[in-house]
Design a protein around this nucleic acid. Sequence first.
DNA 1: GTCTATACGCCGATAGAC
DNA 2: GTCTATCGGCGTATAGAC
Lengths: 194, 194
Amino acid sequence: MPYSADHKKQSRERIRMAAAELFCRYGFDQVSITQVMKHAKMTHGAFYAHFESKGMLYSEAIRSAAEQSLFVREGYELNREKIIYLIKEYLSLPHVKQEVPPCPLAFLSTDIAHRDEHVKASYEAVFNGMINKLSQVLDDSESAHQSAKSLAQQLVVSLVGTVSIARSIADPHAQQTLLDNTKTGLIHLLKNTV
Amino acid sequence: MPYSADHKKQSRERIRMAAAELFCRYGFDQVSITQVMKHAKMTHGAFYAHFESKGMLYSEAIRSAAEQSLFVREGYELNREKIIYLIKEYLSLPHVKQEVPPCPLAFLSTDIAHRDEHVKASYEAVFNGMINKLSQVLDDSESAHQSAKSLAQQLVVSLVGTVSIARSIADPHAQQTLLDNTKTGLIHLLKNTV
DNA sequence: GTCTATACGCCGATAGAC
DNA sequence: GTCTATCGGCGTATAGAC
């Protein structure tokens, strides 16, 4: 055959990456296969040689987006200080504006609710991955009244809620205030549970 | 004319209400004008006698949804105990499953991010309304290190984040755990800032 | 594997009868 | 004001050449 297996793999990966960026930015319904393929430097006809449907691509794109996002990309050798650093990055305007690879949990939260179980399973896997990673770090210095996993969940829902809301608000000043308030609140929460 | 002004007003209201329910449940893109009008007991042709576009309907539907939602409908004569009651209702499975009129902040958060400034303004107004209402109650018994408005924001972003994520997760047990954890965390937060 | 071309359906919005 | 009918556009997915 005129195309190597590696070439196919690379094409597939380009599609996955393009999809991760575009779906996060515009949502599932407002991104067409034609747009994704153009972003991946191909035409729409080639799509179905790599994925069986747009929905299946979505499911994979969520995991791709997660792999590139803050907490995974910089989440090696995590400790309390690094968590605080990541919280600040997560709750930053560049993240909200998707100038860095965004967290799909925050950018796609309500979008996932309308999709099939396969897509939801991807979202849930990313969510659990983030919780597990955080709770491992928080475990060794945990307060008496709150388990590490529960604390990690508090953290994540606040992060996700804040960024979701900030993206849906037009006023830049209100965005910044919101981000800063959550930042202060979460750091306070972490300090008090050392 | 064969139709009274009141009749027109009622039709318009039926459309608004139908839109509020359907948009919250399925999102903007996955609801057609035909569906909304069918839900409002009319045919699609009549739509543009009441609204100038689907986007304008969305903007109004967000406010309609907010008016019916928990914190507004039961938010009169608020106090700390009632806030705790509303938190429990908000973080309940019937709310997540939209068996009661849902909060548009949680059900539409990422959906709004892709719309125009007019829609975002509606979302922001609902958000600010909720923050203001809560912070008034929290103001008289505020802790030294955290303003009432900031505390109210912590509350809302946790509520919104939790319900958004819970809707996007398939496993009912994980949903319930998530809801319960946030419930505990927020009640703890409120008690500690009396 | 990737291309161009197209089948087929749905949607937002408009036109005109009643 | 509400109806039926339709326009124009775009979407997913497929077919067939190379």
